[in-house]
């Protein structure tokens, strides 16, 4: 009986060693530094903006311009982007009435906002800003609770057809941190203090319940002033 008992002991030792190695590997994976971090409150250099004033969609000759200050991790912004914006895009932007300018306004309370804004900036490098913008808002509930969402963003990059190697290099460089900060600073100077906030006809609209109907009404009110016959 002694030999089988020592054999069992050796087996339990082996099993314990495997368990310890597995636990150590998992702890290492959980503790290791993850993904990309985009620094906040960086000094904005002239080269950071270099004429860049947001992501624009719509006709250059549109009579009304709307600037949206938004945070990718803000649930109200996601509601607006996924429910209201498609109608605005179809009815006001594609018809040439409105030019839309998206400005980053990452709130400090949202740890993944800047990384998301940077992901969109890197997608813009490859001409896919609006695709990434949609992907980020569409999947907000998926990545928002993550400790570090950059790996999810990398997956979205692949799904929207970006060159993922180029995208990852762009993310690692954090080269748009200054540009994102500049957008936040500019919004703050204007009086933006929550998201989404819309700058329409020189006035800020901070109503979180903004919807395509109210925005269309505002645009139509501005049209005669802009000289558009209605």
């Amino acid at each position: 009986m002694a030999a089988p008992a020592s054999g069992m002991n050796r087996f339990y030792l082996l099993l314990g060693a495997i368990a310890l190695a597995g636990i150590a590997a998992l702890v290492y994976q959980v503790k290791r530094p993850k993904g990309v971090s985009i620094p906040a409150n960086v000094t904005v250099l002239a080269a950071d903006t270099a004429g860049f004033r947001g992501y624009v969609i719509g006709s250059d000759s549109a009579k009304v311009e709307i600037s949206e200050y938004a945070d990718y991790q803000c649930p109200f912004c996601a509601d607006f982007a996924t429910i209201q914006f498609p109608a605005i895009r179809q009815q006001l932007i594609q018809t040439g009435l409105v030019r839309w300018r998206f400005r980053d306004f990452p709130l400090n309370m949202h740890p993944n906002s800047r990384v998301a804004a940077h992901a969109a900036a890197c997608a813009d490098e490859q001409g896919k800003f609006w695709d990434m913008h949609s992907a980020l808002f569409d999947h907000q509930t998926e990545w928002a609770p993550q400790k570090n969402a950059s790996s999810r963003f990398s997956t979205y990059a692949g799904q929207i057809g970006l060159d993922v190697t180029k995208y990852n290099a762009c993310m690692s460089s954090a080269k748009y941190a200054g540009r994102i900060q500049a957008s936040l600073d500019e919004g703050t100077k204007l009086g933006v203090n929550g998201t989404p906030t819309f700058l329409i006809g020189g006035r800020l609209y901070t109503d979180r319940a903004s919807n395509s109907d109210s925005i269309r009404a505002l645009v139509m009110n501005l049209m005669p002033k802009a000289g558009t016959p209605q």
Binding site: L14, A19, G22, Q29, V30, P145, Q146, K147, S150, S151
Partner: peptide
């Protein structure tokens, strides 16, 4: 069977921790 099950358990745990957001990127 016990050794294999333990190995499988760690593989599944790794993927589940990823799903929970505790692991940033899968290796």
């Amino acid at each position: 069977l016990a050794v294999l099950s333990l190995a499988g358990l760690f593989i599944a745990l790794y993927l589940w921790l990823y799903k929970l957001g505790a692991i940033g990127t899968l290796a």
